[in-house]
């Protein structure tokens, strides 16, 4: 297990995308401390901001998070990264596999374009969690993103594949969804704006889009499979499917093959 300990609040945003347990395990102490992580012309390296203790290739622990630590775990494909504290933007953006856990809060674009693995944020997430970066065709793309606290606006924007589970979410949750599954205990206004396909399951919601129509209640095998899939991730979300949830179909501004399930 490698351990990086943040010495003090970083003076600029740091880009940690290259730090994976596998990459660090192949380096000597001096090599690791010279890894460039700064984003200004000062050219900060890992040893300037963190004390470095190298270990095995399976796990990396970052002790002492900060909202200026960007792209943590973005290149992760195997192994585990655990951050004890907050992180900045693009947590696990584009990651392909492995397990990424943050005990604090995450900035915007957490899990953007992630194709595999599991990202867990025990605190809150910023806007566009599981969403698409500027000009990207898709947001979350196969990974599992779990936000125990509250997610900001545009949760799961343009997600194409995978699962998002959030405690609460802001406005425009599931906007422009292409496919995939998003479950939240509560979402803000205008969930599913422009969604084409995909499934959004909510306990409660703000103002609904006028372009969603109620299609009644249904007893579908799919819902029981969904509940079974959700239960190991979050029993509270699986419980949303107890009873007979109402189904809304939309967004009718597009092809309208998405569905919004509202717990009974």
């Amino acid at each position: 297990m490698s351990v990086l300990t943040l010495r003090e609040a970083p003076p600029e945003r740091l880009d940690l995308h290259a730090l994976t347990p596998l990459a660090l395990s192949g380096l000597g102490q001096a090599e690791a401390e010279r890894l460039p992580i700064g984003t200004s012309r000062r050219g900060l390296v890992l040893g300037d901001c963190f004390s470095v203790k190298l270990g095995g290739a399976d796990e990396l622990v970052i002790e002492g998070g900060h909202e200026r630590l960007d792209r943590v775990g973005a290149a992760l494909s195997a192994g585990t990264i655990r951050v004890e504290g907050d992180v900045g933007q693009r947590l696990g953006a584009g990651m392909a596999g492995g397990t990424l856990t943050v005990t604090g809060n995450a900035g915007p674009f957490a899990g953007a374009g992630a194709t595999g693995g599991t990202i867990t944020i025990e605190g809150d997430a910023g806007d566009h969690a599981g969403g698409a970066l500027h000009a990207a065709k898709a947001g979350l793309d196969g990974a599992t993103l779990v936000i125990r606290g509250r997610a900001g606006a545009h949760l799961g924007d343009s997600m194409r594949r995978g699962l998002i589970v959030a405690g609460e979410a802001g406005a425009f949750a599931g906007a422009r969804m292409i496919a995939g599954t998003l479950a939240a205990l509560r979402v803000g206004d205008h969930a599913g704006y422009g969604m084409r396909r995909g499934t959004v399951l909510v306990g409660a919601h703000g103002t609904l889009m006028p372009t969603f129509v109620e299609t009644g209640t249904h007893d579908l095998v799919f819902l029981r499979l969904l509940a079974r899939m959700l239960r190991p991730v979050s029993p509270g979300h699986a419980d949303l499917l107890n009873g007979t949830p109402r189904r809304y179909s939309g967004d009718l501004a597009t092809i309208g093959k998405g569905e919004l399930w509202v717990a009974a």
Partner: peptide, 19 residues
């Protein structure tokens, strides 16, 4: 009357013949 992006979505749904 609703937020502008919502009004545009509603117009598009009517233009498509869905509403």
């Amino acid at each position: 009357l609703s937020p502008l992006p919502i009004a545009v979505a509603a117009l598009r749904a009517h233009a498509r013949g869905h509403l």
